[in-house]
Write a protein that binds this DNA or RNA. Structure first.
Lengths: 118, 118
DNA sequence: CTCGTACCTCACGTTGACGTCAGGTTTAGG
DNA sequence: CCTAAACCTGACGTCAACGTGAGGTACGAG
């Protein structure tokens, strides 16, 4: 599969895929002419990368953790890092939940005031 | 209160406070010598700004929503924006929860493998 | 009055994940 | 063989929320 097709299938840009390779997150074979040629599994890998980015992990962290996330094998240091990241995500969820509750209260107040005005 | 004290009390940097003013998120009176002078309420306001930033809102959005968040009075357009932001936060929470679950499973697998190896 | 600290205004630097040219090459189809 | 579309490698631009340094001013204690 060539880069354009992988981009369309995964929903990320061609530029992003080249960037992933630059960051050693994604490998590619090359044709005799030098064009990238991806195996089918690359699609899952790109989606995994996107998920980890969406969780707020940096590319540096992702490149460290990708092996064990996809293979299930990890050194103790990698396990520690995994736990750190999971806890970071949990803390972030708590922050967001508080903010959501706060905004929800503001919305209720505003809506109540508007109804009262009608 | 001067800027250094507000910075210490709120836990944000002096630079950040000046930035908030530049973005019209925070006002200040000035002494005859041109130094910023904040009322006590500024502390709550700074904390509110931090909360909204932590929720992932941009300074542009915060400057639009700050009036109604602190006063409870909002135009219909502001109410719509509030709802949009709340839903965005909710969606983000779902993303993070999925990622956390995924990492949790990886951690369990790795831990199980390590125990088996002992 | 003098010192030390806090404050002021520019204004350029930082970081991450790409976007966006420029200028050239490869590929697939007719 | 010819062409259009897709691809290639640099390399500079972007955006947000500040960090950081330069060079100068204000304030409070003694």
């Amino acid at each position: 599969m060539r880069i354009g097709q992988l981009a369309r299938r995964s929903g990320v840009s061609v530029r992003a895929l080249r960037y992933y390779e630059e960051q050693r997150l994604l490998e590619s074979a090359r044709t005799s002419g030098g064009q990238r040629d991806y195996p089918d599994e690359a699609l899952e890998r790109v989606q995994l990368i996107q998920d980890l980015f969406a969780a707020g992990l940096s590319s540096r962290t992702v490149v460290e953790l990708l092996p064990c996330v996809s293979t299930g094998v990890a050194t103790p240091a990698m396990l520690d890092q995994l736990i750190i990241e999971r806890d970071r995500i949990a803390a972030r969820i708590e922050d967001l939940t508080r903010a959501k509750t706060k905004l929800g209260r503001v919305i209720e107040n505003v809506a109540a005031a508007n109804v009262a005005q009608d």
